[in-house]
Computed example of a mutant assay.
Amino acid sequence: MLRRSGGRPAGFDENSTDATGYCSPLSGWPVSISNSSSLMYGVPNLEAWNIVVFQGLHASSGATRLAIYLGVVLAELPVYLAAALALWALVARRDVRMACAIAIACLLGHYVEVLCNQFAYHDRPFAAGYGSALIKHSANNSMPSSHVTFVWTLAALYGMKKHWRLAAVFGCLGLVLAWARIFTGLHWPLDMAGSAATALASSFLAISLVRAGWHMARRARGVQEVGGQARAVNPPSRERRR
């Protein structure tokens, strides 16, 4: 369990916090990590790295109003932009296979979150006493970030299908979102590493499942792909057609 040696800041609300109750993170309070069983993966060095990187990315007491405003907006906006872009791409390309892959990958990503909640629970920064969050949020499990996982899943799926431009756009949106979620105090840097791993694994499995299912369906209908084109298996002879 992450704890500050100086305890939690005055006025800290474990259930929800907001910008008006903002407290500067790590301002003069030395970091201490207890040896409790809730220590993430039981690796103190991993937690130390997590805290140090969080210190550098989280909003400080000297953050400007513009920076705080951008952080709050960008902690949500990229998700909607990514969803809108994915929907446009699916409709424009009439890509049913990609739609299936996205649905399966998102479902697999959700299962990973459930497993992490059960077996790799980790307090969010504000719940661990590292300052207030700039956005109201419940003090639930932080690993991984569902927002970032979704956007990077889109990036991974389109990258694996070699749609490089869309993959790059989704990847950049995910990076901006990851920074904003850390800046506003909702997530740890390590949560983003978990999101990246979840996105890659779920995307690979989703594409594999869709490809296998598609081939099975085509074979059942007597159709197979040759050189990217659909051709009938054992086409009827001329005598049969007569």
Rank of each mutant, 00 (worst) to 15 (best):
H147S: 07
M160H: 05
F150K: 05
S138A: 15
I104D: 01
N141D: 15
A155H: 01
H147R: 08
A127G: 08
H147E: 09
Y130S: 06
K161H: 01
A92D: 14
M98E: 07
N117M: 04
T153A: 04
G159E: 02
R93N: 13
H137C: 12
V114N: 06
L134M: 12
R93Q: 14
A103R: 09
G129V: 02
L115N: 05
H122T: 14
G129P: 14
G109P: 14
K136A: 13
A83H: 08
G129I: 03
G131H: 05
A103V: 15
L157N: 03
S146H: 10
W88V: 14
V114I: 10
A84I: 13
Y111G: 09
V112T: 10
T153G: 11
A82F: 02
D95E: 08
R94T: 09
M98D: 10
K161Q: 12
Q118Y: 06
A103Y: 04
Y130R: 05
R124A: 12
A103C: 14
I102P: 08
A89T: 13
H137V: 15
E76Q: 11
S145M: 03
L115K: 06
A105D: 04
Y111R: 03
V79R: 00
A101Q: 02
H122W: 02
A133Q: 02
S142P: 01
E76M: 11
A86T: 15
L87Q: 09
L87W: 08
L81R: 01
L108I: 07
Q118T: 06
V151P: 00
A84H: 10
A86E: 05
L90F: 03
H110T: 14
C116I: 01
K161F: 00
K136T: 13
L85V: 12
A139N: 09
L90D: 05
L115W: 14
N141K: 02
A120T: 13
I102E: 03
K136P: 15
C116V: 04
Y111P: 03
H147P: 03
L90P: 04
L77D: 02
V114F: 08
P144F: 12
S132E: 09
G131N: 10
S146C: 11
A139M: 04
I104E: 00
C106V: 04
N141T: 12
Y158M: 15
T153Q: 02
H110I: 06
W88A: 13
W88H: 11
F119V: 02
L134D: 03
I104Q: 02
